[in-house]
Design a protein around this nucleic acid. Sequence first.
DNA 1: GATCGTTGTTGGCGATGTGTCAATAAGCCG
DNA 2: CGGCTTATTGACACATCGCCAACAACGATC
Lengths: 192, 192
Amino acid sequence: MEPDSRREQILAVAVRLFGRRPYSEVSTTDVARAAGVARGLVNHYFGTKKDLYLEVVRVMLTVPRVALESLPQGETLDRRIDSIVSWFLDVVSRHSTSWLAAINAGGMAGDAEVDAVIAEAIDVAADDVLQALGLDDGAGAALRGMARSYVGLAVFTGREWLERGVLSREQVHALLATTLATLVERVFPQAA
Amino acid sequence: MEPDSRREQILAVAVRLFGRRPYSEVSTTDVARAAGVARGLVNHYFGTKKDLYLEVVRVMLTVPRVALESLPQGETLDRRIDSIVSWFLDVVSRHSTSWLAAINAGGMAGDAEVDAVIAEAIDVAADDVLQALGLDDGAGAALRGMARSYVGLAVFTGREWLERGVLSREQVHALLATTLATLVERVFPQAA
DNA sequence: GATCGTTGTTGGCGATGTGTCAATAAGCCG
DNA sequence: CGGCTTATTGACACATCGCCAACAACGATC
């Protein structure tokens, strides 16, 4: 089999397994067996096990951001906020299992490289939020930090919504939309 | 040595090591060597390695909540919110290293038992917030869920503040206080 | 005070997982 | 067909973990 497709196949299998069980409970032997190859081949393509896991997390986190530019641009602020929140909740509920696995980062605690990948994903998400709000022009460091904070709220609330199941989608939507409006109108100005 | 003190000593050593390096990079041999005992003794006292780690996380998470009842009760809402946020930022900045390590232990999530310990800590923190606001009476499930969401924001913002260092304490305070006020005044009523 | 039981403590065994590498098989081109 | 590249394998060496039998130190009992 050609290298590209084989690598992709192994990666797909790894995504599926790491989506179900945490990092420590998935052995490279499991990945190899599920992919129908020898264990050494996994190391040949991805190096160490953590390197494979980094690729898996990258795949899981980059799946969602596809149709962001389809958001309305010329509307009022409240409508744009509604659009962002709705889009986020759609993505989260659609890819719920893999998204939850990626956010939980499946079992690597405080590892520098895994943290860096997740932090990078949060960075781009924060910039997406600012861009969708039309605030990406004079985006100072403080404003971007607050945007990252809001992304953290969104991530955590999404997990609360999906895993606990005590909040309805409407309640989550209201929480995220109202909070974002408050941030834009009352907190962001102080940072600029 | 007596069992209690020996167990406590090993636990203290484990807290120190797990605070520095992530879970997978700390072996039980390291803990045993740093404690000056044989490796088997660690298993004797704590069972498996994950059980030891659970104890460590519990210790790290229960350090902060000590002087919560010293908050003013009879003041206005804004002042109570200010007090909560100030108290939180004080605790976080004081125990920054161990607090960050405990929060990063959320990275070990995906494991059912570790998740349960962290979820428990977030639960009590959310109830503390509601109690400090005087809302603990008619605390429905949805309201408690939203309070957990806010705790997630606070945790994430605290990490953003300490690790990134682009936000000043005043900015973090304004963000958390304004957001909490918005939640209480505009989002919570809809949930009740 | 000697003996015995209790208990803290140790070192090692078997099992599992991981990284590496030489050997092999399979395809391709001349 | 023969040689070469390369994907792929199986096995070796090493680390870590859970478990357990053996040892030692201390106190209780007669």
